[in-house]
Simulated scan of single mutants.
Amino acid sequence: MTQTLSLAPFKSKLCSSLTKSKIKVLQINLGKRCNLACIHCHVEAGPKRTEELSPEVCQQLIQVIQTFPEIEIVDLTGGAPEMNYGFKPLVQAARNVGKKVIVRSNLVIYFESEFAYLPDFFAQHQLHVVASLPCYISDNVDKMRGSGVFDASIRALQWLNRLGYGKAPNLILDLVFNPQLPVSEEKFSLPPDQGKLEQTYKMFLQEHFGIVFNHLFTIANLPVGRSAGYLQRQKLYTPYLKFLESNFNASTVEHLMCRSELSVDYLGNVYDCDFNQMMNLPAKTRNDEVINITKILEAGTLDLIDEIQTAPYCYGCTAGSGSSCGGALVEE
């Protein structure tokens, strides 16, 4: 990774320090257990991973959810968040105090016998489902996520539609697009125009499968986790970072997801975003102390972070139209 020193430091692109705004989102990574092992997964989750939330950290997170009214959204991710300890208690605690809950679902988990209850559970608690479908073409999805995943994803989306998802105003179903990982420098690309691609997805899925959904989020592949490993094996890691740097868009900075969220791992450590979490770059106080859930509860405030921690992969969130857990940050 020392090759990245040839890049301009991300901070040099900013007019001022990158600071937090009002915290609205508590994003919780419940663990690395997953029934898939996608080649682009920045979490490096999979069926053989065992790391997950503990009961003690789960109770602390419930306390945070109940204590801080400024948290509007509890965003549950993983791994497959549904497979990891604490999923149901966190959902119920958040909904009981009126928080919106996002579950980042791989869809195919519903066909594991132990998890067949999930679609009904989602609808009962009016969870906002954000589902990975990195392409509307079968071969592309299966190459990224595993053989048969596209067909299972289609059946899962039809299941959610039958329950009212994508139709009822309180049952929101959003999909996520990721570009294919590049095979050469000539194949480097940013996500296409989000609005136009959303219309293409909607027409194709409606025509071929009768599927409806609310929104499409386009998310760039950041060089983190398995994506980073792939790029390094292909000797594309540094060229890809340079490509992202060359497409830096200053207008995305004020909309970055790291500004209004706290990201928490299964151990209770706090980060500015999920990518920093995977790269073990913890959030810090103005006194340069790392932050965890215990410190937040003791301090009685979410506002312990003075400056957001940055790294070269931040160029991935600020290239082109920008990229976040909610898709593009600005219109093209």
Score class of each variant (00 low, 15 high):
214 N>W: 02
216 L>W: 03
233 R>T: 15
238 T>I: 14
253 V>F: 13
212 V>H: 08
228 A>S: 04
254 E>Q: 11
228 A>D: 07
231 L>R: 02
218 T>H: 02
225 G>K: 10
230 Y>H: 01
256 L>W: 03
234 Q>P: 08
251 S>A: 08
224 V>D: 03
233 R>K: 11
236 L>K: 07
217 F>T: 00
233 R>S: 01
218 T>P: 02
216 L>R: 00
233 R>H: 11
232 Q>E: 13
249 N>E: 09
247 N>S: 09
250 A>T: 13
226 R>K: 14
236 L>Y: 13
237 Y>S: 10
245 E>T: 05
256 L>D: 01
254 E>W: 11
216 L>I: 00
211 I>V: 02
257 M>E: 13
223 P>E: 08
215 H>R: 09
232 Q>R: 06
214 N>P: 00
242 K>F: 14
247 N>P: 04
229 G>V: 03
234 Q>H: 15
234 Q>N: 01
227 S>N: 04
222 L>Q: 08
231 L>Y: 03
245 E>A: 13
252 T>S: 09
253 V>Y: 13
255 H>T: 10
235 K>Q: 15
253 V>K: 03
247 N>L: 11
245 E>P: 06
237 Y>G: 08
244 L>Q: 14
248 F>D: 09
232 Q>K: 10
226 R>E: 05
256 L>C: 14
240 Y>P: 09
216 L>N: 00
233 R>A: 10
217 F>K: 00
254 E>Y: 01
256 L>H: 11
228 A>P: 06
250 A>M: 05
220 A>V: 13
233 R>D: 14
